[in-house]
Design a binder for these strands. Structure first.
Length: 311
DNA sequence: AACATCCCCAACCGCCTGTTT
DNA sequence: CAAACAGGCGGTTGGGGATGT
């Protein structure tokens, strides 16, 4: 298999600087490896970066004894080996943030990923392409179309918010429950200082509801920015969502408002939309409930909804 | 069980931009 | 100022696992 990936062509070769590249180095470059990284290569790269730091990737590749291009090393490090890289499915909060940020910036994957701690641009891009675009296609529309924006804003994002709220309510309830059954007074106190709803340390930096005692307010923690926690309740906007979309999406997501990690496309919302599209009244409600329409400029910025600056 | 198809994602590619010489 | 280089970005590909027939 390795042989299949061995490459001697120069398509992605580091720049050849005759003065800087010794014969050994040139020989190494002549048998550059491509394809999946081995554990040995990962270990080599990790240890070299740990000892010398990031940057100067071409030089790093040579000196670390990696028969890889500098680009390949950089990519492997940033997307896989770098400490703090998160793997696995996107949480509802992350999905919500991706949708919102993409509405602002388009395919600026690295910029979007910068607001998702531990996530890489590659992951965000893959998520968008494999989930979002796939379902846009199923709907027979383009991801950039007004129709798709309406769907996202009026169906998908409310469902994500509902799921987030449900998750946090459950977590808060669990925390309270734990308090009752826990005989330790100190643990009781500490639990109240750090609501379980906000204990997702991985997400907290960008999506935080702050530290406060579990209460009905806990369900109002939805999302936030990297620079400020979300303390304000989005309740008014949420009420708007609920009333505007009515029972349509609410029914459609009734089984999904529980924790589980899947994305909103897993379930029946597309069927729901299809139904709505065959009902003019429902369709109108979907697109006009928020003063939205095909001519909207800022389609579904969360700012509009929660009246709270994100960044 | 075997085969076909679908789907996800790691990795590559080529282009662009900023920096250095 | 121009050329060379390094790094970064978004788009694309293809291997392999999951799922369906």
């Amino acid at each position: 298999m390795d042989a299949l990936w061995m490459s001697s062509r120069g398509g992605d070769l580091p720049p050849s600087s005759a003065a800087a590249v010794s014969e050994d180095e040139a020989a190494a470059l002549s048998e550059l490896r491509r394809g999946p990284w081995t554990a040995e290569e990962d270990a080599l790269l990790s240890s070299y970066v740990a000892a010398h730091g990031e940057g100067r990737w071409n030089e790093l590749a040579l000196h670390a004894g990696l028969r890889r291009t500098g680009k390949s090393c950089r990519l492997r490090w940033l997307n896989y080996l770098r400490p703090g890289v998160r793997r696995g499915g996107f949480t509802p909060r992350e999905q919500l943030l991706i949708l919102d940020l993409h509405s602002r910036w388009g395919n600026r994957w690295s910029k979007i990923a910068a607001h998702l701690p531990g996530r890489t641009d590659n992951e965000v891009k893959n998520y968008w392409r494999t989930r979002v675009q796939k379902h846009a296609k199923q709907l027979g529309c383009h991801v950039g179309s007004g129709r798709f924006h309406d769907v996202v804003r009026n169906l998908w994002m409310p469902r994500l918010v509902e799921r987030i709220q449900a998750d946090e309510s459950a977590a808060a309830a669990a925390a309270v429950s734990q308090c009752y059954y826990d005989s330790s007074a100190s643990q009781l106190a500490s639990t109240h200082q750090q609501p379980a709803a906000c204990q997702d340390a991985d997400v907290a930096p960008i999506v935080s509801c702050g530290a406060r005692a579990p209460s009905p307010d806990a369900t109002s923690c939805v999302t936030g920015s990297s620079s400020s926690s979300w303390e304000a309740s989005p309740a008014p906007a949420m009420a708007g969502w609920s009333s505007a979309t009515g029972e349509q999406w609410r029914n459609g997501c009734s089984t999904s408002a529980t924790s589980g990690g899947g994305d909103m496309f897993d379930e029946s919302w597309s069927e729901l939309l299809a139904r709505a599209n065959h009902d003019d009244a429902d369709s109108a409600a979907l697109t006009t409930g928020f003063g939205l329409g095909e001519t909207g400029d800022n389609w579904w910025s969360l700012d509009d909804i929660w009246q709270q600056p994100l960044y």
